[in-house]
């Protein structure tokens, strides 16, 4: 359990998240990709806190901020998905090609 090992795991999570966010058609699956990217970021922040900062509490603070970002992303994302579905009956990105009529 060393800093590079943790960072490689976090890079793998981030990479899978990038792939998912770019490749998926469904809005909710795109959000999953975004959450995986944040997951990688949380792991990296935790790793730096443990191995590089010597227990500086601001490192943990960063993780708390990431969690907040994730909660905000999920809530706003779900609200937008509901709204888009109600207005355009769209649940995948391809149905939203036109921003105007």
């Amino acid at each position: 359990m060393t800093l590079p090992a943790l960072l490689v795991v976090s890079a793998a999570l981030f990479g899978i998240g990038v792939y998912g966010a770019l490749s998926q058609q469904s809005f909710v699956m795109i959000m999953m990709g975004l959450e995986l990217m944040i997951n990688g970021a949380i792991l990296a922040a935790g790793a730096f806190w443990a191995f590089s900062s010597g227990g500086e509490p601001k490192g943990q603070m960063l993780v708390v901020v990431f969690m907040t970002v994730m909660a905000v992303e999920a809530a706003i994302g779900f609200a937008l998905v509901i709204n888009i579905y109600r207005v355009r009956k769209a649940d995948i990105t391809e149905k939203l090609k036109k921003l105007k009529t």
């Binding site: 976090s10 890079a11 793998a12 792939y19 998912g20 443990a50 590089s52």
Partner: peptide, 27 residues
């Protein structure tokens, strides 16, 4: 997107393995 995912993994992984980070005693 597969390419983008792999590229970001390789890039971040390279940073993780090659860069030198400050070392500190565990908290």
């Amino acid at each position: 997107s597969l390419l983008a995912g792999v590229l970001s993994f390789v890039g971040l992984g390279a940073i993780a393995l090659l860069a030198s980070f400050p070392q500190a005693p565990p908290p």
